[in-house]
């Protein structure tokens, strides 16, 4: 009621104003609009610029390596002796190590994360979901060094004593921790995409005599697959780029486990190599350049994963808008 009165009282004032703007008003509007646009442009341009500079810097520092040393050896040889008199830069087992712990982490995390996402979106009540989801998302904010401590101080002794391993810091340890770290991202994005599937599809399924289980697995998850794939790729990006935890938990042994599926052996990842070695190299030395070369490989991988996740998120968005 009050609002209405206020509006009525105001009305004569506004209607007494002429419809045309004065020249000053016109200019003010023009100036505010364009300066606002300029500020926004400047801010976003800066962000883009910084990203481009990082790209430029890494590539500029790393590219000479591929000119000066054998690129094929870099990708195919396991010999990594960067400080030797006759240095060898075979990064195969380092690249392998990164992919190895990442993929093992995903194998552990994805089924659990998807089940958790289904559970949150389909099974528990809305109220519980609204409490639980922020807590899960909060897990993503725990600093990775804290996870690293957990890996070294809790998980490693546990693995050593209970599984009789010679060392507790190994690929298994790193994969377990990475999978825990990837969970919040995957759960959160997958849950969003499952929740975004409209009620109409569920009703159609129930209406045909499907049970809840059948509806979830035959209709809802297939319909949400783009978002779920995007969630997995985002989780993968989180795992492959993670540095501190793998450095602390993986054992940093420059080797490809044999047999290859033996997770209890130590490995070394690209990120841990860069972080661990960077302090010991002199700027511009071959070793220094080789670390940037690894950086280029890592950058290319995350960039690719980013494009893939963008693609699937975009098509998930398109699907849910259609409905």
């Amino acid at each position: 009621m009050k609002n209405n009165n206020a509006q009525i009282n105001k009305e004569p004032k506004t209607s007494s104003r002429s419809l045309a703007l004065t020249a000053l008003e016109d200019f003010n509007g023009f100036a505010i609009y364009h300066s606002g646009r300029f500020v926004l442009f400047a801010v976003s341009f800066n962000t883009v610029l910084i990203v481009l500079l990082i790209f430029y810097f890494v590539i500029q520092q790393g590219l000479p390596f591929f000119k000066n040393f054998d690129t094929i050896e870099f990708f195919t040889s396991k010999q990594w002796y960067p400080e030797a008199d006759n240095p060898k830069f075979g990064a195969l087992s380092i690249i392998f190590g990164s992919l190895y712990v990442t993929i093992s982490a995903l194998l552990l995390a994805v089924p659990a994360a998807i089940l958790a996402a289904v559970f949150l979106s389909e099974i528990v009540s809305h109220k519980i979901r609204n409490y639980v989801k922020p807590v899960i998302e909060l897990l993503a904010a725990i600093p990775s060094v804290a996870y690293g401590f957990f890996a070294v101080l809790v998980l490693a002794p546990f693995l050593q004593t209970h599984f009789g391993l010679s060392t507790g810091t190994n690929a298994l340890n790193a994969s377990l921790i990475l999978s825990i770290m990837a969970l919040p991202t995957i759960i959160s994005v997958a849950e969003d995409s499952i929740t975004a599937i409209g009620r109409d599809l569920r009703e159609a399924s129930y209406g045909l005599g499907a049970t809840r289980f059948e509806t979830i697995f035959k209709v809802v998850i297939p319909a949400a697959h783009s978002g779920i794939i995007a969630a997995i790729v985002l989780g993968m990006m989180r795992a492959i780029g993670e540095t501190m935890v793998v450095w602390m938990a993986s054992g940093n042994a420059n080797q490809i486990p044999s047999p290859w599926w033996d997770l209890t052996q130590s490995v070394r990842t690209m990120t841990a190599t860069i972080a661990g070695d960077m302090g010991e190299t002199s700027k511009g030395s071959p070793h220094y350049q080789s670390l940037f070369a690894i950086g280029i490989v890592l950058l290319a991988m995350t960039f690719l994963l980013n494009i893939i996740s963008e693609y699937f998120l975009a098509s998930a968005g398109k699907n849910s808008r259609k409905k």
């Binding site: 109409d200 599809l201 009703e203 159609a204 129930y206 209406g207 045909l208 005599g209 049970t211 319909a223």
Partner: peptide, 19 residues
């Protein structure tokens, strides 16, 4: 409910084919 809904089909307001 499964039997019931198989015997009583439903068509909704907005076409809702599965993707």
């Amino acid at each position: 409910l499964v039997n019931l809904r198989q015997q009583v089909g439903m068509v909704f307001q907005k076409p809702n084919p599965f993707p």
